[in-house]
Write a protein that binds this DNA or RNA. Structure first.
Lengths: 136, 136
DNA sequence: GTAGCTGCAAACTCTTTGCAACTCT
DNA sequence: AGAGTTGCAAAGAGTTTGCAGCTAC
């Protein structure tokens, strides 16, 4: 993958200070921040930034597929950079989000879509679970 | 499975006229109606019903697991009766929602969660695709 | 009788947008 | 220079809630 800024320029976006800040925040986030989270982190780097700009920028990045927008049944969106394809397991007790990949799953999904008469364009998979308690 | 009304009574819910109407609407819907949809259909049976009651009832039913709440990335919720476990393929060109089940997928998900150290409690899978065009 | 339910309207949360000023290219 | 971008504040959409009256049990 590579440089977010480069890919934005490629798409014809003007590289403003605010966008640079937001891209920096996204690129250095290891989690799945909400818009509010991105806004707070961005303000740490440039206190004049507005949340409207964060919303607008995230929408743009989503359209460009540079970012993925998640709705984990919380009533708001979370974002993450679209570095690599993976899925999420949400720990119901702690809210922790675990990422995973599974090749078998990928193949199976394409096959299911095909059997239904569809070309698979996109998909979402979320698992919700509780940590297995080891017995002593 | 079976009677929605019975299961509500079992849970200690009072069986009011409005609830009966909403349950009837849900039980006879073959699609995945939004709150607004449920409200409109319910008004056809009892014009005095309010949307606040629809929201409250659907939340209750969701807590009781009698109903499943979906968020198909549209900015609002859709509901369906929790009759049987299945997943959805959303046709990106028409918005049509196709339901499917796949045993292999179910096993795989349990296994993935287990490998990550989790007991699978719930999960969501949505495929987004385009209809395969047959060549003449 | 009374705990629970309802309609109404107001409030809330998340997100989008109109506008005038500003800024990359 | 000029199209695109920004901050602000207001508006929008979807959803929740306080309250007084009503109703199933």
């Amino acid at each position: 993958m590579g440089d977010l800024e480069a890919r934005c320029a490629e798409a014809g976006l003007k590289m403003t200070g605010q966008r640079r800040v937001i891209l920096k925040v996204l690129g250095s986030s290891e989690d799945h921040p909400s818009v509010e989270d991105v806004y707070e982190r961005a303000k740490g780097l440039d206190s004049s930034i507005s949340i409207a700009t964060v919303y607008r920028t995230l929408s743009l990045l989503d359209e460009l597929d540079l970012v993925i927008r998640h709705e984990f049944q919380e009533g708001y969106s979370r974002y993450e950079v679209n570095w690599d394809h993976h899925h999420h397991l949400i720990d119901l007790e702690t809210g922790k989000v675990v990422e995973f990949q599974n090749e078998e799953l990928e193949k199976l999904k394409v096959k299911i879509a095909k059997d239904l008469g569809y070309d698979l364009v996109d998909h979402r998979l979320e698992l919700y679970g509780k940590k297995i308690k080891k017995k002593k």
